[in-house]
Each structure stands twice: as structure tokens, then as C-alpha cells.
């Protein structure tokens, strides 16, 4: 999907791809609202900075209007619209993937295709540990507040809060590593030999064909894009 979207010709091709492919797929996966909100949140700062830098600092070009010594150039504006489209495409396709795919199922499928179990564990455990990490950070922040550390206020105050939060967060996480390793060993994690799985990754008969079809469509779009240039 990402390759296909980025291969779309013209400035508005990528937007058309998002409207006709990404958003309907997100709606089908019942993640449309979350996807739109998260994409805007992530992509907006990039899009804004691209618009300001490219729109106003484009060398030469045709001015549309001037603000003091700076003028918005039509070529810069067109470039920023095209760049924003690509950014939105990259962000939305990754988020669509993250919102609709269970990491453990993905990893299991990859392990069945030869990915080492330990690598799969590291990836999934890292994704799963984020909420726990956030909860711990909140607990440490509350503890620091209880001791009178000012955590709100202006930027300088907030920056000062970082150290009393980060140091205990990192140290306590390092201490946990040993117990986590013990807990994994207690469950036979490093046992040599074949491992099995409770979950079965079942593939419908039409899925391999769909995968090939999507791959071919992506290649076709890339070729089309190169041909139209």
C-alpha cells in the first residue's frame, strides 16, 4: 500500500490514493476515526514546517503574496503540498498497519517463516511494555509531586522535572530486567528444541493470491509512475 501510494503520479495522486484506498480500508477495519486523528497529530508538525520552509524560502519562483521580507512562492507551495501528501501517506499506512495487526500474530507468522524466536520476543515485548512504562512514569511523577517537586508550570520548570523522572524510571527498569529474565527462564524460554504455539495463524486459500496481486499492483504503479514522468 505504501509503495503504491508513493508511486502515484502527480501532486494529487497520493491524496487520491489515500481517499480511495487507505481511508476505505481503515473504515473496513473499524479504525477510521483513530487513524485520522493519529495521522493528523503525527503529520501536522512535519507538514507545517515543510509548508513554512519550502513555501516561504523557495529560491526564486513566483510570489503569491508577501509578508514583510518573506513571500509565499507558488512553486514552494506546490512542493509542500506534494511533500505533505507523501508524509501523510507514510504515516497513515504505518498507523493503519499498527491499528489493524496483532503484533503477536504478525511475529508468529514471521517465526513460521524463519524469524528467530528471541528476535520476535524482543519486538513484541517492546510493543507491549509501553503501557507499563507509561504507568510507571506516571507513578514516579506522582511520587515526585508528593515530595514537592514542581512538575507543571513553564518550560524551564518542566525541563527541571525530566531528571527526577528519567533517572528513577531508567534505574527501576534496569532492576526489573533481571526479574523478567528469571521469569522467562522459569517458563523454559531458553529451552533448546522446537517450540509450538497455541495460536494458529490460519491463511485463507485466496490470501496468497491476494498478496501476489497487491505486489504486482504496486510494481505496476511504480512502472506507470516512471512512464508518466
Amino acid at each position: 500500500m505504501l509503495v503504491g501510494g508513493l508511486a502515484m503520479p502527480g501532486t494529487w495522486g497520493v491524496y487520491a490514493f489515500m481517499a480511495l484506498v487507505v481511508l476505505p480500508l481503515a473504515s473496513w477495519g473499524r479504525v477510521l476515526k483513530e487513524l485520522v486523528i493519529a495521522t493528523v497529530r503525527v503529520a501536522f508538525p512535519f507538514a507545517l514546517s515543510v509548508f513554512l520552509i519550502q513555501g516561504f524560502l523557495w529560491p526564486g519562483g513566483t510570489p503569491i503574496f508577501a509578508v514583510g521580507p518573506l513571500s509565499l512562492k507558488s512553486e514552494g507551495l506546490a512542493f509542500s503540498v506534494a511533500s505533505t501528501g507523501r508524509i501523510l501517506m507514510v504515516v497513515s499506512s504505518f498507523l493503519w498497519f499498527a491499528f489493524t495487526t496483532r503484533p503477536d500474530m504478525l511475529m508468529l507468522a514471521l517465526v513460521q517463516r524463519g524469524l528467530p524466536t528471541s528476535l520476535s520476543y524482543m519486538i513484541v515485548a517492546t510493543l507491549q511494555i509501553v503501557p507499563r512504562f507509561q504507568a510507571r512514569a506516571a507513578a514516579i511523577l506522582d511520587a515526585q509531586r508528593a515530595r514537592g517537586v514542581e512538575t507543571g508550570g513553564n518550560l524551564i520548570h518542566r525541563v527541571r522535572t525530566v531528571l527526577p523522572l528519567v533517572v528513577p524510571l531508567i534505574l527501576s527498569s534496569l532492576i526489573d530486567v533481571e526479574e523478567r529474565a528469571l521469569a522467562l527462564e522459569a517458563r523454559g524460554f531458553s529451552r533448546p528444541g522446537v517450540k509450538t504455539s497455541l495460536i494458529e495463524v490460519r491463511e485463507a486459500t485466496w490470501e496468497p493470491g491476494l498478496r501476489w496481486g497487491i505486489g504486482l499492483a504496486a510494481v505496476a504503479l511504480v512502472v506507470l509512475s516512471l512512464w508518466l514522468r
Binding site: R102, D104, M107, S120, Y121, V124, A125, Q128, I129, R180, A183, L184, A186, R187, G188, F189, R191, K195, T196, S197, L198, I199
Partner: peptide, 17 residues
């Protein structure tokens, strides 16, 4: 384990190993 999404799967982790 940090890799399982349900209690049943978590209990099965050691058995999978």
C-alpha cells in the same frame, strides 16, 4: 511474558517453550 494478549495465551507460554 509481555508477548501475549490473553490470559489463556499467557498460561500457554511455558508450554509453547
Amino acid at each position: 511474558s509481555g508477548t501475549k494478549f490473553t490470559v489463556r495465551e499467557e498460561i500457554a507460554f511455558g508450554l509453547e517453550n
